[in-house]
């Protein structure tokens, strides 16, 4: 079953085309990453999914329910952790979470689950503290708890770990991974690409309101720019003549004792290059290889589409 379906969504703000015909489906049980630079249109898309912004055209459905015509069912199936650190200054942590669940029609029967969330997110000590007295990281945990209070099958995390400490990140990811394992669909936007690379099955990259890449994380990293590798060779020879076979692969030799080669793994291998260098009597003292990661893919794709 499709958890989230986005069909030809357009949104124009004065002077800015925020979304230009986005088409995207996320299957139930997927861990999906939505990436893009600032101003790419991610937040606008999430706001339209949440019903905070109206699309000019196109449709979005959550668990099969249209977000405008069947907004109640769609919203009941959706939990959103907003990017902004917002809180109700009149409430304690427990009240804020229980009240949020109440808005979704969850009464006292949900208190046990709420206590579990409070515990999992390490908020137990602060459960009866007023929201105003919490640190930024604690407020972020409460936002996560509020989004999960009604047990939504589709969870959207909009920059959930922005500006939070390592401990929270760990506990948050452990909890999200548990929810995902138990069947929840998770959509993540993050600036920490290593998080997306570690957790997401599939990634969509959005730029200038358009979806410029959509593939499994493994395929994105394996193909195109991601099939490039760098080889860093340390050598004792400061004067050397490179063999013709690898000369064109050299991209940096500013440090006389270090040579940097860039090559496509489908055409060359590290061994080929090392053998060629040794055949030319270049003494190798150390080697270091680097593979392209999601960040390289992201930078390559988003810089290519700049207008």
């Amino acid at each position: 079953m499709i958890a989230l379906s986005i069909n030809a969504v357009h949104k124009q703000f004065p002077g800015v085309k925020a979304l230009n015909g986005i088409e995207l489906s996320v299957k139930q049980g997927e861990f999906f990453g939505l990436l893009g630079p600032n101003g790419a249109g991610k937040s606008t898309l999430i706001n339209i999914i949440a019903g905070l912004t109206k699309a000019d055209s196109g449709t979005i459905s959550v668990m099969g329910y249209d977000v405008t015509t069947h907004f109640r069912e769609a919203r009941k199936n959706l939990g959103i952790v907003p990017q902004e650190l917002v809180f109700d200054p009149y409430l304690t942590v427990r009240e804020a979470i229980r009240i949020q669940a109440g808005y979704y029609g969850v009464g006292k029967e949900g208190y046990r689950w709420i206590d579990e969330i409070i515990d999992e997110l390490m908020l137990s000590d602060k459960a009866n503290t007023n929201m105003r007295a919490l640190s930024g990281g604690m407020k972020r945990r409460v936002l996560v708890a509020q989004a999960l209070a009604h047990k939504p099958p589709l969870i959207v995390l909009d920059e959930p770990t922005a500006g939070v400490d390592v401990e929270l990140r760990r506990s948050l990811w452990a909890f999200i991974k548990r929810l995902h394992k138990e069947g929840s669909t998770v959509i993540l936007t993050t600036h920490y690409l290593e998080e997306a690379e570690s957790f997401c099955d599939r990634i969509g990259i959005i730029n200038h309101g358009e979806l410029i890449a959509l593939d499994s994380t493994a395929n994105l990293i394996a193909g195109g720019i991601a099939s490039m590798s760098r080889l860093r060779i340390s050598t004792t020879n400061s004067e050397h003549t490179l063999p013709d076979a690898v000369k064109h692969l050299l991209i940096d030799s500013t440090n006389k004792n270090e040579l940097v080669f860039e090559f496509n793994r489908s055409q060359y291998s590290v061994l080929n290059i090392i053998d060629a260098l040794r055949a030319s009597n270049i003494a190798i003292t150390d080697i270091h290889t680097e593979h392209a990661d999601l960040e390289d893919v992201f930078l390559s794709l988003t810089s290519n589409t700049k207008t």
Binding site: A50, L52, R75, V86, P89, I99
Partner: peptide, 9 residues
């Protein structure tokens, strides 16, 4: 924090 009443059904 108006968002808390705009997100729910």
């Amino acid at each position: 924090h108006i968002i808390f009443i705009l997100l729910p059904p």
